[in-house]
Design a protein around this nucleic acid. Sequence first.
DNA 1: ATTTGGTTTAACCAGGTGGTCAAAATTAAT
DNA 2: ATTAATTTTGACCACCTGGTTAAACCAAAT
Lengths: 208, 208
Amino acid sequence: MESPQNTEEKILDAARQVFHQKGFNGTRMQEIANLAGINKALLHYYFRNKESLFEKVFNETFARITSKMKEIFLSDMALLPKIENFVHFYIHFISHHSYVVHFIINAMYEKPEQLREIIVKQNILPELFLEKIRKQLKDEIGLEIDPLHIYVNILALAIFPVVAKPLLQSIFSLSDDRMAQFFEERKQIVPTFISNALQGYEKSTNVV
Amino acid sequence: MESPQNTEEKILDAARQVFHQKGFNGTRMQEIANLAGINKALLHYYFRNKESLFEKVFNETFARITSKMKEIFLSDMALLPKIENFVHFYIHFISHHSYVVHFIINAMYEKPEQLREIIVKQNILPELFLEKIRKQLKDEIGLEIDPLHIYVNILALAIFPVVAKPLLQSIFSLSDDRMAQFFEERKQIVPTFISNALQGYEKSTNVV
DNA sequence: ATTTGGTTTAACCAGGTGGTCAAAATTAAT
DNA sequence: ATTAATTTTGACCACCTGGTTAAACCAAAT
């Protein structure tokens, strides 16, 4: 968060802020220019057009999220600490960058065609992911269960509350402080919840 | 899904479709008019402006989701069947109206100020909700635990995959058929997962 | 047949939008 | 100091957007 030196960085910083909060359609090039403290024409000098600027921001943001995801899930940690690690990191990161996840999901809805290829370009290694989780579920907990569902469950429990934050906050009339505390609590609650759920399968021979 | 009779319904049907898919900013009045097969000026004859048309659609959509939520959670069913019921209904409903949840969440980000009051206007009775869940957790499972977290967990597991559908589908290269199957499986997997998790608390005296 | 009321339309408007361009300002090279 | 290349700007443009208006249409009542 240093004060950016060159114009390109100033633009990217500004673009990131505005795109994250307002999405592609909600963003005005003029607003980015103002925030970067430069002329609007200069935006188009550094980045051909709105699309390419957005693409740059999206790539960067997406990579930032998935790289940590890869790092954690492909590591050699045991499954449960791994999940704990993951949940900790994401609740922390995401609750300090509240718009990021919404931004990602939003982008998928606003511009699905263009963005599929972007996702493909950054190799997320989803098969490796699932295979690793499957193996760990089997070896460490003795569960032969579809790893995709478990993985999605983990993602859901960690990410959903942050996406739905404004909704939850309105519905349950939670103050900002209470909301921050809520997320803090989840760092402990979610891993416990998942761990309990996984242990619970042991009794029944629930092969899905 | 009958062919709508009067113009007002035609407009609302069209508006719903477009707003759901493209959100407030992404929607063009002209597109709604085209889809409804009428002149654009007629939109403003029936609905003052874009805002009020959007508000109407949002209210309607939001009520449709929350009313069923109220019905299920405030009923006299036992907690676990209640959860099962809820998950079934929502995965079914939402996966057949994929844009709805994204639409709701999106609206909260795009127009948070105006929409808080709308949410307040429809009385969702969140305290009743939580109190009922808290009591059932205690009486039926013997758990003294923050019902908000449990409730959010349930929501997360049911709703998140649908919101993130385009993302998941891209990342894991799932066909539409595989995706439909995936959601079908979740109707069983999610209640089991939750049930396991809740039963798991019994052993430890995990009071949060 | 004419009036009356609501309904629908084509044409239009002001403001905003992404994007361009030629000229000016700045920097680097000779 | 002059030239050349890069960076920055103000003015501008074509297009799109939500919204308006006056006139046309049409059914029912007289």
